[in-house]
Design a protein around this nucleic acid. Structure first.
Lengths: 108, 108
DNA sequence: GGCCAGTATCAGCTTGCGCTTATATGGCTG
DNA sequence: CAGCCATATAAGCGCAAGCTGATACTGGCC
């Protein structure tokens, strides 16, 4: 599974969000998602591990999970190709608004 | 389907990539993906349409598709929450490298 | 109006993902 | 060392997503 697919799941995004506050043991995450069973959470963690979005370290029986943002670079890079386009579009919109400020309503 | 899920499919990302070059008729996209049949491409386009990543305009029987980057703002916003973390981490790594330049191997 | 090009939709199949229950593993503790 | 805690893995199920072949719709052309 690739990073994009891993991020497609809202639960996994929420898990990452929780981890931005700092490292947490797996059990913490299990109780953070009361709607899910422990195996379900564990499996999501496996996915995140496999794409490198989290790192795990054992502390006695606990597994401490920490965020790894490195794979997000790929997403950022992909998105980057659209920033130019995006900006160009915003410019176009601004230009449009400016030029149509006297009441043109051509579009819709 | 949300934007993240729409972007999870590599074919759909490739389609968007093609559209960065400018608007294209559906048929163009069909021939750009020889591995897929016309209905398959059409369905991907429908998904992209539904999440607002493309816009369609009719020109005779042709359907001209154009890129709409606006929904990418959501992705960008989500990613933005990690930029801070990301930077912090890079700093930490740099600091770590700097401080461990004499041969500390604490981790692992 | 009949036909063709271009594209969307339908019906049905297959596969992959997420979930659950049940079970295994590893480490701590009395 | 027996039992418990924390977590991972296995097996099996249901559903959603993607694909295909067939068909419908729409607009231009003879």
């Amino acid at each position: 599974m690739d990073v994009f697919t891993a991020l497609a799941d809202p639960t996994r995004r929420a898990m990452l969000d929780l981890l931005t506050d700092g490292a947490r043991p797996a059990g913490d995450l299990v109780s953070a998602f009361p709607a899910l069973t422990q195996p379900a959470v564990s499996r999501h963690l496996r996915v995140l591990r496999e794409v490198g979005l989290v790192e795990v370290r054992a502390q006695a029986q606990r597994r401490i999970y920490t965020l790894r943002t490195e794979p997000l670079a790929e997403v950022d890079a992909w998105l980057g190709r659209y920033r130019e386009h995006w900006a160009r579009h915003l410019d176009a919109i601004e230009a449009h608004l400016a030029s149509s400020s006297e009441g043109a309503d051509d579009d819709r």
